[in-house]
Simulated scan of single mutants.
Amino acid sequence: MDSARLLGVLADEVRRLRVLSGGDLTAPVPTCPGWTVGDLVEHVARGFRTVVGQESDQRAPTPAAALDEAYGALEAAFAEQPDHFWIRRMAQEAAIHRFDAELALGVPLTPFPEDFAVDAIGEMLDVFLSRETHTWTEDYAADLTEWGTHWLRVADWRVDVHPTGVEVAPIDSLDADASVLGRPGAVLLWLYDRGEDVVVSGDVERVAQVRRLLTTAMNVT
């Protein structure tokens, strides 16, 4: 997915999150234990500021104000120098946490655009499985076993686990030992441990092993 399309998704998701920030900021977020909606909005704002290098000790008067200020800085930075990696990552960050806020507030859940969800699945597998496990292999050692020729299918991606890290590539056959399939949005939520509206088949222990690797990645990054 190109940067222009991702910037559009990012803008849409921030607008939705901004509206949600006008709701009950004290509502607990079930998918982020210990957080309230206010905490979640401020977390997204901090992420935006971190990307543009504008960390600040000054606290905005409200989470909504913090989000407005941080997104303004992010938007300006991307207008001056588009960075596809960070545009993609921040679009996904905003989308997932918008989902979290909707869930917490009990409002209708907005589906992810399908093209965005398809792209985000690949991004998630690449960033949180392949890159993380190859860069900080020792953090994942307990679940980096040798699968040999065995593999897991996640949507249209092939996942192979080895002691040196996880390999991710587009599927090249249909003989997977296990699979996680479903609508792109459902698979994306499964990857983030936010939904089980997928079909899991085959060797469930391999699926559980990849789930543990993903959980570790999200806890250490």
Rank of each mutant, 00 (worst) to 15 (best):
V159H: 14
G195S: 09
H97I: 03
D139C: 09
T145R: 12
L174F: 04
A60Y: 03
T36N: 09
R59Y: 00
R194Y: 09
E114W: 00
G122P: 10
T149N: 11
P170Y: 02
L10R: 15
L6E: 02
L7H: 08
E167I: 00
A91P: 05
L6R: 15
A117M: 06
Q58H: 11
R211K: 10
F112H: 15
W157V: 00
M124R: 07
G202D: 06
L181I: 05
P82I: 10
T133N: 06
A176E: 13
L7G: 14
R194I: 05
A120Q: 14
Q54K: 14
A95Y: 06
D119Q: 02
V107E: 13
L125A: 04
D172S: 12
L129I: 03
R153H: 07
L188N: 08
V159W: 08
D193H: 14
G23L: 12
T215C: 04
R88L: 00
A60N: 04
E138G: 02
V200L: 11
L152T: 04
L10M: 13
T135G: 06
N219F: 03
D197M: 01
F116C: 02
A155D: 14
L174K: 07
H84R: 12
A64D: 10
A169W: 03
D39M: 09
V198G: 05
E123S: 08
L40N: 07
W147V: 01
M90A: 05
P61Y: 01
A79M: 06
H162N: 00
G148Q: 12
P28Y: 09
G47L: 02
L109I: 15
L152A: 03
V52G: 10
D68Y: 01
D100F: 02
M218H: 14
T50Q: 09
